[in-house]
Structure formats: C-alpha cells, structure tokens
Write a protein that binds this DNA or RNA. Structure first.
Length: 804
RNA sequence: GCGGAUGUGGCGGAACUGGCAGACGCGCUAGACUUAGGAUCUAGUGGGAGACCGUGCAGGUUCAAUUCCUGUCAUCCGCACCA
C-alpha cells in the first residue's frame, strides 16, 4: 500500500472513452432533469478555482441525478455580448468579435478539464446571429404588445462606460461594472414595461424553491406598498396637490407638506417674497449628483410661502420643498407627520415646525418628544372623530375611508421602475426598430431578423449619448417597412441582460431555425430544475429572466411561468484573508497546475471540501494534498482486494449500509463538504478492516459508485478493474436498509449531573433500568450524595443526577 | 438607520429533532522505512500537573446548551430619505 495513483493516465483514458460512448443518453423513457450553470461571459483572464466551484457542484448534482435514473440536461454557453467583453476588446485593441471567439475557445478548453457532463451540442452564444435573432424577436413581440416603448427622460449615465444604465445596475450611486459615479443624462431611451409584471413577479416568488435571501431581495426591489393618495387644496388657489401616504391614520398629525424640488408645481407655489430663494433651491438641487444627494445627512429645505389645506380638519399646513422627497416615487409630494415619522421629525425640528402627536404610545401622550413614534400601534388622539380608534385599524382601512369621503383614493405603489433597455455601445444586439417620419417607430419585420450587427472600423463609445452605430450611414439609412419612405434605424443596442434573460430556453433546441424553441421540446425538457450560480444576480439576471419567461408564457411560447424551479447560490472562493481573487491583486489561483499535479478528480473533490458550498471560502492550495492522499489510499485499498474474495462480515455489511445512508443524506441536503469528510471516514474504517484480511467486493463496489459523481475517472477505472465491462454510470444509486445499519452494541457516555465521567458499552436494546444499573456499577465510588434522578437516552447517555 | 448571515483548536471546518464539543482534513511533534525525502507508514496533537476549564461576550431555561430564550459586541453582505 501507499503508492499514489496515476491520475494523468486514467483521466485521459476515460475522457476519450466517454467521448466515444457518452454516459448520459436520452432513451425517451427516462425522466429529464435540467441542471443549469449560470453561463459565463468569456473573459480573457480564463477560469480560476472559484469558477470551478459552481461548475463542480452542478456536475456532481447532475451525475447524482444521472445515477438516479434521469436523463440529464446540462448545457453550457457564452454570455458574450455586453460591456465586459467590449471593454476587454478595447483594452487589447482587437475587435470584440475576435477577442470573444478567442476567449471562448480558451475557456472551453479549461472548462473541459472539469470533465463535466456538458452537452456541447446544445451550446449557445449570445453573439451568434442565429441566437440573437430570437433576442430581437422577443423585443419585437414586446414592442407589438406595448411593453417596449420609447421615452425621453433623465437616466442613469456612466461617464466611464459612456452608456445609460438600468436602475438595477447602479449600486450605491456607482456603476455596477466599473465603480464610476453615475450621473444623470437626459436621453431618449427604450424602456421595457417590467412594472406591468410587478404583481406577478412578487406573488410567484412564493412558488419558488429559492434561498429566502434572494426572494427577499426581489421582494424589496419590487417594493410594493399599500396606502392612499390624499388631495390637499392649495389655500387661496384652485389647484390641489396629491400626496401619497402609507399612514393615513396619521392624517390629523400632518403639520407640513414637502414637495420634491423637481415637482411641476414647485416654482409656481412660491409667493413673491420667496421666489428668489425657491428658485435657488431648485437650481442647487438640480446640480447635485446622486451620490451627493445620498451623502447629505443633514436635511435641507425651503418654504414656498404657500399653504395647503388638510382635507380632514381644514388646518393650514405650510408647503416646503426638500430634496429628501423623491420626484419619481408616489406623487413627488408628501404630507409630513413629524410625530410619527423619523425624517419628518428631523425636518420639523430643524425648521421649527409644530409637532402634533396623534397616536398615544401605550395609551399615553408623550411629553416633549425627542424622537418620532413610528409604529402604527396605539390609540388615536388629537384626531377629531377618529379619537379612540386603533391606529393599526386606520392604517389598514384608512385608504378606503378616504376614498369614500371623496378626498382621495386608495392606491398601491412600487419601487420597481421600468427597465432602461438601450445602451449607447457597439457590442450588443441592435434594437430592431426603424424610425419613419410618417409611421413612427416600426419594428423590423420578423422574417427579416436577425438584424445583423454591422462591421465597423471604430466601435469605441462616443460618449455623446449616441451609439457608435450612428456613424455608419449606409446602415442607419434604410426604408420604412410599412410605407417605403426613407427612414433611419435605431442605433442603440440592447444591454447584456437581453440574451441572458432567455438563453436557458434555447439550449434544449439550439439549432432550431424556425422557432425560438419547439413547443414539444419546451414542454418536455423545460423548465430548469436546478439553477446554480453566484448570488450577485439576485435582482438583475434573475428578475429579468423571470420577467421574460412570464412574457413568453403570455404569448404562448412556453407553458410555464417560472424559469428556475430551484436555485442554489454557491459562495465565493477568495484568496487569503477573504480578498476577492483578481488579476490586479495577484491572488488568482489557476486550476490548470492543480489538475496537472493532482488530477481533475482531486480538484473536484477539494473544491467541495474547502467549506460549506453556500458560504464563501478562502482558498488554500495545501489542503488538496489531503484529498489526493485519500483517493490514493482508496485506490490502493481496491487494488489490494482485486484478487481476494473476502466474505462480508456483519461489520462490513453495516458499514456499507451506513455509508449509503450517510452519503445520500448529506448529498440530498447539499452538505457537500461533509460528503467528502464522510468518504474519508468510511475509507479509514475500511482500511482498518482490511488489515484483518480484506474487504468484500460489494462494499468496495458500493463505495466506487457513491464516489462516481465526485471522482468520475477514478470510479470508472476502479469499476472496470473489478472486472465490469460497462460504465460505472450504468449503475443505479445504491439503496440502504435501515435495519442493516443497526448495531447490537452501543457506546454510551456515563454522566453525573450532566458531566461525562466515562464511556461504557451496552447492548443496543438495553432497558432503562439495566442501563442505569450498568452505569452506576461503572461509576462505583465516584457516585456520592443523594440520588435525585436517572436519565437514559437510548444509545447515547446515562445521566445520574445526585445532590451533594 | 433597517434587514440578513456568520462567530467553535495554530488553520479550513464537523456535531442529526438539546444528549460524549473539536469528526474529517491541513499544519505541527516523535518514530519507522530509506542514499535521500516535500513520498509512504505508525503514534500523538484544545488548555491545564491536576480536580477541572473551554464553542465572540454577559445572563437565563434545563438533569444536560455550539444548539433554545434575553441582552450585547465584532465581521461580512443586502437595502438605504420609497413617505
């Protein structure tokens, strides 16, 4: 024993064999299982050990399902349009099409080292015209349904990437990609009406077997709230100002009103003596960047000189302007109740505005409030005919009451905004729209798709808000498909998310020239059963994909409303001290050397062994030695038993069943790190048993099959070495028998007052009386004092409670 | 500020519905085999001489707490004036 196994030879051998005779075949009878990885964008940096992790997890899961009798759909493709690919191309000074193709071929080579079950016949690439034809087709369908529309508005603009961004792409006021501070730019943009799906996107989260964290992030992003719009008359004028509130119960406590500086009435409300001050405030607010506005902790504001009339009690409330009110949420105006809202309290305190408490906390009014009481719990006071009512009741019923009184209406609001869908960049799908002077926006006829992205000399972003495509006159100038008059093409391109929002549907029918996906195939092979990837897409890709799928369901392309039944987010692999692996930090660990030195199987297993798959883990190369030693020991154990015909002992049979049980249980619970440690434990026990003569074949074969999803090459080699002519993956996952796992004798801890004194062996089926008696005997003199209580937990603990 | 996750030896981590804390692995120590060993094998490895003490910290419930409850600290992540 003790010779390290030759991983290079056997891995090459079985890789070739599997290519000739695939182990995963659709015989039309097996149930499908679709296990999907989030497809990568083909970066020039190649893969590091962190990328491997997700792919290993998904492949282990796929092979486990394969051994459970499923036909596995396990595809891979390339998210190759978009900013990262384009920025890389610009940096390297090559055309993105060229660099993308090179990167794809390099990464594909690296991915093949994982030896995953990928079906390359399904491969898709979002930059392939046969693929983006359908990305464009979906857009045309959305346009025809009124879900894609053009709008002139100030949007998020990244000055470094020189393009507009969706709200989802702005993180802390900065560009999600490059970290540059995002500014506003007034541009005519294509928008997708994702808001029309807000309720379905929210409600259907309940159906999903997803991490609660991701569901919550999407729930918060959609940000649904219930409340009322209340109309306040402007004192002495005809107009009314409508405010939105979720706290109608506090209406009597409104002592002022605040409008966003961008509100259409902001300037007109200013009385003559306030005009200059108001104008200045509005101007200053318009000059502030997003980040400035976020960072200003101190509230600012200006009084317009006008008053509004509280519709309930006729009280006059001063109207202020302040940038803490957002123009694009609700009505851009709020009623302010300083006694029951933190922000209003801060503002009122600063500007000496009266504070009227309307909810009695614990039944009493608070003297000299030092902070707002924001809970809707308590009895109403200072509230006219509402006095004595419950705040929580009014919060809920208030909107309907307000509507009945004719002073407003109940309403629902969302934080979710429509999706800014155009990018002023070259490397994306051209938006298939033609602008005609007579007919307006006309979609490119479906039979003329794909609208090819033209070849171009200069693809660098212009920064003017125009796409580089705008310079290609022969492409821009076209004729209107409806009236035939000269017309111009839309020159913006789609965001990177366009292709990734539906690519998983295309895999199952990637060569179809006639349809996005064949109906029957879609019905039989979709949706995705298990989706594995990082958590960074919680509200971007995953929300967009759900939206696209719901749309495609609505137009009859697919017959399900949710794309991903189950989602698993794997943790990140970081370098030392939890620092993210990156080329600039110089802490990137490449899998290539590790595969060369220890083999694919060892690395696969070590990727799982580093820690719980859902948590981040620090990478430490040294640990892989341990996995390699374990595999070598198992290898030698099997070889040592090839010619022996050991009869199974009770002990071996028990170990076999327990091994099947433990490995299966941990695998089902996705506790993949403990699956690996479990294998090591069982292997150590088998090595001990082997010293007494040998191990029976059935136990060894069982271990080989259980290991197969993790170490496919090693398992295949050992399986054949034991004389089998067919692949190890032709087996079915072993089953255990609960009864066969039971031990006749158990080691039990003997405690006094919960403190372990010793361990004794007792029969597994011993009675409480006998166990306690055995325990007392074993303790002997150690047991003193008055006996109070005796506890026996079968097979675990004998605890004698004694008072000293 | 709000919400969530995490906190266990020198290190990564284990402990099922409360039941022998530290499995498994790395590292380390000693030994064996060796011309040699960064190979392999064997033994040991939380602290303490000891009764005992030990799962971020302080309490509580219990015969028994890493696990349940209350409070608190630290780190990481998400949201961030959404009325």
């Amino acid at each position: 024993m003790g010779v390290p196994y030759n991983h290079r030879e056997i891995e090459l051998k079985w890789r070739n064999e599997w290519e000739k005779n695939p182990v995963n075949v659709d015989d039309g009878k097996k149930q499908k299982y679709y296990c999907l990885d989030m497809f990568p964008y083909p970066s020039g940096n190649g893969l590091h050990v962190g990328h491997w992790r997700g792919y290993v997890i998904s492949d282990v899961w796929s092979r486990y399902k394969l051994l459970n009798g499923h036909y596995i759909i396990h595809p891979m493709g390339w998210d190759a349009f978009g900013l990262p690919a384009e920025n890389y191309a610009i940096k390297m000074g090559v055309h993105p099409a060229k660099s993308t193709a090179e990167n794809v071929s390099n990464i594909k080579k690296q991915i093949n080292e994982i030896a995953a079950l990928y079906d390359w016949d399904m491969e898709v690439n979002t930059t392939d015209p046969d693929f983006y034809k359908w990305t464009q087709w979906i857009f045309v369908k959305m346009f025809k349904q009124g879900l894609a529309y053009e709008k002139q508005m100030p949007i998020n603009w990244c000055p470094s990437c020189k393009t507009g961004l969706a709200n989802e792409e702005v993180v802390d006021g900065k560009c999600e990609r490059c970290g540059e501070e995002v500014t506003k730019k007034n541009l005519k943009q294509w928008m997708l009406k994702i808001t029309e799906y807000a309720d379905r996107l929210l409600d259907d989260l309940d159906k999903l077997d997803w991490p609660e964290k991701v569901k919550k992030m999407q729930t918060d992003w959609i940000g649904k709230s219930y409340g009322a719009e209340v109309d306040f008359k402007v004192n002495g004028r005809e107009e009314t100002i409508t405010v939105y509130t979720t706290r109608p119960d506090t209406l009597y406590g409104a002592t002022f009103m605040v409008l966003a500086p961008e509100h259409t009435m902001a300037l007109s409300l200013a009385t003559d003596d306030k005009k200059a001050e108001v104008e200045k405030y509005i101007y200053d607010a318009s000059m502030k960047s997003n980040v400035d506005r976020l960072q200003d902790k101190e509230k600012t504001g200006v009084f317009t000189g006008s008053y509004a009339v509280n519709p309930l009690n006729g009280a006059l409330v001063p109207i202020w302007l302040s940038d803490y009110v957002l123009a694009d949420y609700g009505t851009g105006a709020i009623m302010c109740v300083p006694a029951h809202d933190d922000r209003d309290f801060e503002f009122a305190t600063k500007f000496n505005i009266p504070i009227i408490q309307v909810i009695a906390k614990d039944g009493v009014a608070i003297e000299n409030m030092t902070q707002a009481y924001t809970e809707a719990v308590g009895t109403m006071i200072n509230s006219g005919e509402w006095n004595g009512m419950e705040s929580s009741y009014l919060k809920k019923e208030g909107p309907a009451m307000i509507e009945n009184m004719g002073i407003g209406k109940k309403t629902t609001n969302y934080k979710l905004r429509d999706w800014v869908f155009s990018r002023q960049r070259y490397w994306g799908e051209p938006i298939p729209i033609i602008h005609c002077e007579h007919c307006g926006c006309v979609p490119v006829p479906e039979d003329q798709l794909p609208l090819l992205l033209p070849e171009v000399e200069s693809y660098q972003p212009t920064g003017t808000g125009e796409s580089p495509l705008a310079d290609i006159e022969e492409w821009v100038n076209t004729t209107c498909p409806v009236c035939g008059a000269p017309a111009k093409r839309e020159t913006n391109t789609m965001p990177q998310w366009a292709g990734s929002s539906w690519y998983f549907l295309r895999y199952v029918d990637s060569h179809n020239k006639e349809e996005l996906v064949n109906k029957e195939k879609a019905h039989n092979l979709l949706p995705v059963d298990m989706y594995i990837g990082g958590v960074e897409h919680a509200v971007l890709h995953l929300l967009y994909s759900r939206f696209y799928t719901k749309f495609l369901y609505d137009i009859g392309v697919v017959d399900f409303e949710e794309p991903f039944v189950k989602l698993f987010n794997q943790g990140m692999i970081t370098g030392k001290n939890g620092i993210k692996m990156s080329k600039s930090k110089g802490n990137v660990v490449s899998p290539d050397d590790l595969v060369r030195d220890y083999g694919c199987d060892s690395l696969r297993m070590y990727e799982l062994f580093v820690g719980p798959p859902e948590l981040d883990s620090e990478w430490d190369d040294r640990g892989i030695e341990g996995v390699y030693r374990f595999l070598s020991r198992f290898w030698n154990l099997v070889l040592d038993n090839v010619d022996k015909n050991t009869e199974p002992t009770q002990e071996m049979i028990r170990l076999r069943h327990k091994m099947i049980h433990d490995i299966t249980y941990r695998l089902e619970n996705f506790s993949l790190n403990t699956v690996v440690s479990g294998f090591m434990e069982f292997n150590n026990k088998m090595i001990e048993m082997n010293k007494a003569g040998g191990i029976d074949k059935e136990t060894l074969e069982t271990a080989i099959i259980l290991l197969a999803p993790f170490t496919p090459h090693l398992s295949e080699e050992l399986w054949r070495t034991l004389g089998h002519q067919t692949s190890v993956f032709q087996n079915v996952w072993p089953v255990y028998d609960e009864k066969m796992m039971e031990e006749t004798e158990k080691e039990v801890a003997v405690q006094i007052n919960g403190k372990t004194k010793m361990v004794i062996k007792v029969a597994a089926d011993i009675s409480k009386e006998e166990a306690v008696k055995a325990g007392k005997e074993a303790l002997g003199d150690k047991l003193t004092g008055e006996l109070v209580k005796e506890i026996y937990v079968p097979g675990r603990i004998i605890n004698i409670v004694a008072k000293q």
